[in-house]
Amino acid sequence: MGINRRDFLKGAAGSGLLLAADASPALAFGPRTPKELPPDAVGILFDSTLCIGCNACVFRCKQANPHMALRPEFNVPIGGLKIHDTPIGLSENTLTVIKLYKHDGGHSFIKHQCMHCIDPACVSACPVTAFTKDPKTGIVKFCKRVCIGCRYCQLACPFVAIGFKWDEPFPEMVRCQLCDHLIPLGKYAACCSYCPTGAALYGRVADLRKEASRRLDLEYGEPYRFPVNHIESGRKSFRPAAKYYPNIYGDTEGGGLQVMVLAGVSPLRLGLPDLPDVSNAAVSEGVFKTIYKWFAAPIVLLGALVYLAYRNTEEYRKPKDEDD
């Protein structure tokens, strides 16, 4: 049989309609409004130029969080301290890791961990609200009870900082929660409380941002009193400032991060992703919420479809001889 011009145009028009009906809002609407940093949000400032690679943070992190040894048999406490292992990256056993970046002129250490985004993708992605962002401290928390193990959070996380216990029959997700279980005890993140040089510095994000920009203003070699452990601890390390790459990673990247990085080289060379200033969660939710605003579009579409289906199944509804 042949196809006439009319049929063809109808087909083309039909497809056009389908396109228009569905996702044209995706084109027309931008990201949703970015999330604000809670005023008392806490975070970490990691200064790569201060890090000496002593791995205290990695070890203390494993100690502060339960069952973090690389191999289960290492979880046996010996003399009150768990055996130290050498992780190669973030995993279900390692919530923070110091990695080495080597280049011709030298090397830098970088602390990889959950960056506690101000607008976290995992919180946006989780279908069962297992991830929440603390409204006061801004810490991204994980609630194991409801997690169904779909691993969409891992997919969404720009830093691949969420672990999954792959080798267990009844697994769970594992992530850095900035030691929020220590806060009621009057302590703070274990990695920072044991960092001897102040490379990992804990404190209010607002204070840390000020501190970071102060450091960027330092001349190369200018002596400076670097705060150690907690920005309010009063403990200082006196030493000349290194040469800084003029960017606070996490000030704007990915909609802002509560864990910020200062380094002597571009943070992008230290294994941190090149993120736009708008968070992925905002982009995704911008499209998503536009399509499903008040659930209006689906309801209108459903109405139209019910009408069309009713009109076009007239014949079908009629009782016919062959049915009897």
Binding site: S124, P127, T129, Y152, A281
Partner: peptide, 9 residues
């Protein structure tokens, strides 16, 4: 339990 911003939901 629903997270209304989740596409997966």
């Amino acid at each position: 339990n629903w997270n209304l911003t989740s596409v997966l939901l």
